[in-house]
Design a protein around this nucleic acid. Structure first.
Lengths: 229, 229
DNA sequence: TATTTATTGTCTCAAACTGTGACAATATTA
DNA sequence: TAATATTGTCACAGTTTGAGACAATAAATA
């Protein structure tokens, strides 16, 4: 990494949510030759828009464009930077070169993303051993203030969930009402009443109903929906 | 300003709301010897927490500690920085010295504050001619992307207004239900129904009711309230 | 002093919304 | 053909919300 390529003292971190059947998951990276786990993050090019930098990082790691992405908070305390950890990570990657700027203090702009679990092709970056899904209820300890960032992402997601039916971004283009309900239940962490849920969602007039499709299961087939507008 | 004192490329801007009788107002600064108006902003010390930097700036300009303050968005597009304007401002202040770092690109973390209009003692900073209240519906044109920042602040304030009865921060410690309703109406930009408003607010159980106080007006005297919890 | 006026605190009624269970419809299996 | 699991929808009760009504009351007025 060329120290003259990026804005100093500025980083971003992203909380990337996915949904697989029943559980909410997030993307976590593991740094090479360490036991340090972290949220996917990165730096902002000298002539690059902040949002573009985040999208670039997500594209590199997931292969996806046009991700549902929202900025939710900027973490700027002095004590959030831990040069000891950063040094250890860099040494585990072949020693500290010119990039000692990475040991400086960083302000981090945090984003959350909602993506379709099945669409991603995960690629760790140069200093990471892995970039993988972890169940939200079975996460490794994260370094820096990344646990706090995750908590705030989740709180923001919960409180914004109603707006624009954003939960649909965790599903593929066609889904059943039950699929969507599972997403809501996983995010909110509670069971919802089927009838009321359906009534509320349909009342938003944001979904398009398609032909039923026989699921092969021994019961009435559900409608399929897609998100419109 | 010493260029080695602050984090480069990082600034904050604050949208400071006040309420006077009927109207919502915000604080706007005017740069010396120019016609440029801007939101109060500033920089972050090398060893200073981001939130502390913003509180420091507000303290300097309003004299107030313990302000109700919330971060709401970080603006990071490349084209938000306008070196021409910055250069003009600096030249109007006695020329460009070593501080050419101020001509660089900046990412700005934006906050809004709610304060009691009557408590402030306004003090312009070194390069400003004035720091004053302006009616929200009668603002001068602001430089950079400050109009956009203001719009987003207002939108965030509107959508968060219910939480924690934050409107009380625009009033003095004791206020009537009518005072509070005026605040809500000014922020939301619509008339509210008196009975329903009172019922809703009292239902939150966040206000303490005090003795009535004869207002001198020719009608039943209202209760006074203060915000508890 | 009695009356008028403006505003307050509270209530009631209707309309809208929400939580809950119920029921018929239906795709597959037995 | 019957049994089973799940779906789409509805009915009902309980709750919340919008709107007007009414008595209480502080001061001005007659």
């Amino acid at each position: 990494m060329n120290p003259n390529e990026f804005l100093k003292h500025i980083a971003y971190d992203s909380v990337v949510f996915g949904f697989s059947g029943e559980k909410l998951k997030i993307l976590v990276m593991k740094y090479k030759n360490t036991d340090y786990y972290a949220l996917p993050g990165g730096f902002v090019g000298l002539e690059e828009d902040l949002n573009s930098a985040v999208r670039r990082g997500l594209k590199e790691r997931t292969g996806l464009d046009n991700i549902f992405l929202e900025q939710f908070y900027t973490f700027g305390n002095v004590d959030r930077s831990k040069p000891e950890f950063m040094r250890a990570i860099m040494e585990a990657n072949g020693g500290i070169n010119e990039s000692s700027w990475m040991l400086d203090r960083f302000i981090s702009i945090a984003y959350y993303a909602l993506i379709n679990y099945d669409d991603v092709e995960l690629t760790p970056d140069a200093i990471s051993e892995s970039c993988d899904w972890y169940d939200l209820d079975n996460l490794p300890e994260l370094i820096f203030d990344h646990n706090e960032i995750l908590e705030k992402a989740l709180a923001t997601l919960r409180s914004n969930l109603e707006t624009k039916l954003m939960g649909v971004n965790l599903l593929s283009t066609m889904f059943t009402m039950k699929d969507l309900q599972k997403v809501y239940e996983a995010i909110l962490g509670e069971k919802l009443h089927r009838g009321a849920f359906q009534r509320k969602i349909l009342g938003m007039n944001l979904l398009k109903r398609h032909e039923k499709q026989f699921s092969g299961a021994a019961h009435k087939a559900p409608f399929l929906y897609s998100f419109e507008k």
